[in-house]
């Protein structure tokens, strides 16, 4: 079937099998390989993108069901001139990533959190990230990065 949607501000249309998952559509049909697949049970969050402004696990949505939607992936987060989004910059500044594989999903979830709650506290950040697994960082620096990206002091009592 033919589907069309807007991805990172660009209208795209492709012929796909009905069973095409959104994540495979992004990765394989559009070549947007920043969105990752880390599990097959909708748990790890490496595939989180935004569909019509809401965070979605792209491995658990059919591409066909995104017909006409506005989709944003990690590749669409920086400005057209390459300026990093505040969350991207904060992840680098605060060493919020190591192997980088969970990072796109983590950043997309963080962006969804800050849209909903611009000044989350540490507890709210940790709760909101419950659908994103990072195996490298122990989350410490991810939490710091999101605090920083929300314009809050990152000095945390524990340090």
């Amino acid at each position: 079937m033919k589907i069309s949607m807007t991805v990172n501000g660009k209208e795209v249309a492709r012929e796909v099998e009905d069973r095409r998952l959104l994540v495979d559509y992004l990765r394989q049909d559009l070549g947007l390989t920043g969105t990752h697949v880390g599990c097959d049970t909708s748990q790890c969050g490496a595939c989180v993108v935004h569909v019509d402004g809401e965070p979605v696990k792209a491995c658990t949505m059919l591409a066909a069901d995104a017909e006409g939607a506005q989709v944003k992936t990690i590749e669409g987060m920086a400005g057209k001139d390459g300026t990093l989004h505040a969350i991207q910059a904060a992840f680098q500044e605060h060493h919020g990533l190591q192997c980088g594989f969970c990072t796109p999903g983590m950043i997309m979830s963080a962006a969804a959190l800050l849209k909903e709650n611009p000044k989350p506290n540490e507890h709210e950040i940790r709760e909101y990230l419950d659908g994103n697994i990072c195996r490298c960082t122990g989350y410490h620096n991810i939490v710091k990065a999101i605090m920083a990206a929300s314009g809050q002091p990152v000095a945390i009592a524990a340090e």
Binding site: R27, G34, T35, I74, A78, Q92, E93, F101
Partner: peptide, 21 residues
């Protein structure tokens, strides 16, 4: 020193094996 490898990862430009076609 801040990590130079981060830029490609935070912008979705890393290249993992499954990204290779």
């Amino acid at each position: 020193t801040k990590r130079r490898e981060d830029k490609r990862f935070i912008t979705g430009r890393g290249q993992y094996t499954d990204d290779i076609v």
